[in-house]
């Protein structure tokens, strides 16, 4: 337990080991630890951001879904209206067509009726003349009695 040169030896060794630690040990390890701290902080930040993004995306999806549903409802509504319109139109058309057909048929009937009447009339004239000739036993001068005959025919 004497104070001797060990004292100086320890001082020198102490300085050397401090220098070695300062030069070769401390900087790389501290740098690595700082880098890891930074990476963890970055990772946490990125996770936070991703979570926020996810939340935003979810909101967007909900929004889009709602608007799409609304649009679809509008489209279906329009389609329904259009379908009713088309049916109504078709009904109207059919009704008009029916009316038209009915009218033309009526006209045809009337035409046929009047034609038949004309024919009948002319035949009646001839028959009346023939009958009258027979009754009078003389021929009627066609020209002299034409007016009379026509009058008769018109009365038929």
């Amino acid at each position: 337990m004497n104070l001797n040169a060990t004292f100086i030896g320890q001082m020198v060794a102490f300085v050397i080991f401090i220098y070695l630690t300062h030069r070769f040990v401390w900087p790389p390890i501290v740098a690595a630890m700082a880098e890891r701290t930074k990476r963890i902080a970055d990772g946490l930040q990125a996770a936070d951001k991703a979570e926020k993004d996810l939340e935003l995306a979810k909101q967007k999806v909900v929004e889009q879904l709602t608007s799409a549903k609304k649009e679809a409802a509008i489209i279906i509504d329009q389609a329904n209206k259009r379908a009713i319109e088309i049916v109504e139109e078709a009904k109207e058309k059919a009704r008009l067509e029916g009316d038209r057909l009915k009218a033309s048929a009526q006209a045809e009937i009337e035409q046929a009726t009047s034609r038949a009447r004309e024919e009948l009339r002319s035949k009646v004239v001839t028959l009346a003349l023939a009958g009258a000739e027979k009754i009078l036993e003389s021929s009627i001068d066609q020209n002299a009695h034409n007016e009379l005959v026509n009058k008769l025919a018109a009365e038929l």
Binding site: F17, L20, T21, F24, V25, P28, I29, A32, M33, E35, R36, R39
Partner: peptide, 15 residues
């Protein structure tokens, strides 16, 4: 002390 810490410092990783 120095060799233990130096051996770690040599292959230190931030992983």
């Amino acid at each position: 002390f120095f060799f233990i810490f130096r051996s770690v410092a040599k292959k230190v990783t931030s992983d």
